[in-house]
Amino acid sequence: MPSDPAPEDAPAIQLIDLHKHFGELEVLKGVSVEARKGDVVAIIGGSGSGKSTLLRCTNFLETPSAGRVVVDGEEVRVRADGSPADRRQIERIRSRLGMVFQSFNLWTHRTLLENVTEVPVHVLGVSRDKASEQALVLLDRVGLRDKADTYPAYLSGGQQQRAAIARALAVEPSVMLFDEPTSALDPELVGEVLRVIRDLADEGRTMLLVTHEMKFAREVASEVIYLYEGRIEEKGPPDQLFSDPRSERLKQFLQSIH
C-alpha cells in the first residue's frame, strides 16, 4: 500500500469493544477483532448473531453505539453519539476498505468497466485512462474481461459478484470486507466466486469474511470467530475451532448446519 502513515507493524484493522443497539435491541455487546496484514478472519454465526452488523460497523455503514475502529493505525474520530466526526476522514478510510455485498449492489446504469473505474476516477482522482487500464486487468483476473461493456442486469449472479470483487479491488484496499458474498447465489454459482476469493486470500490480502460456507472458512481463514447473540463465543485457528469446538453452542451450531 502506498503512503501508509502507520508504523509497519500496525494491524491492518482493529475493532475494539464494539457495541451496537437498535433501540432496545442490543445486537453487538462488546466485540473486538484484530487482523494483521495478510490475515483472513472468518466470522461465522447463526442468523441474528450480529455478524453482518459487525462488518457494517467496520466502515460505519452502521454507526457503532460504542467502541473504536482503527484502520492501518488510524482511529476513526467520532462524536459523542458515535457518528463519524470528520466526514473527510471517514470517506478516506471507507475508500480503503473494499466492501463486497451479499446482493452485489453493482450500479445498474453503468457497465462492468464503468462500475470498476467509478471509485478510482470519482473518489480517488485516478485518471480515466489509467483507471480503465487497471479495471481491464482486474476484470481479466475475475474472468470477465469480455463482459467489460455489458450492464450488470445481463449477467448471472456469480458474474455480478465477481465484478463486485473487481470493483472492490480497484481501490487497492487495505482490508477487504465480504458480507456473505455467496448467500444470494444459486448453488452452482457459489464455486466460481469462492475460487476468486481464495486466490485473493492466497496472495496475502487482508480480509474480514462473514460467511455461511464453513468448509470454505476452514480452508482459507487464518482465524475464525464464532459470534453468538452479539458476543464472541469462541475464536481460534480454523482447524481447532471446527474439529474441537469447546463451546457447547458452537458444537450445536456446527451440527445444525451439516
Binding site: 466492501m99 467509478e118 473518489v123
Partner: peptide
C-alpha cells in the same frame, strides 16, 4: 438502497454520490 449504500461504502462524498449514483439511477 444497495446502490447508494455501495457508493457510501466506497467513501463517495455526498454530492458526488448524488451526481454519479442517485440521479442517474
Amino acid at each position: 438502497p444497495g446502490q447508494i449504500e455501495a457508493a457510501r461504502a466506497f467513501g463517495m462524498p455526498t454530492l458526488t454520490l448524488m451526481r454519479r449514483v442517485t440521479i442517474p439511477a
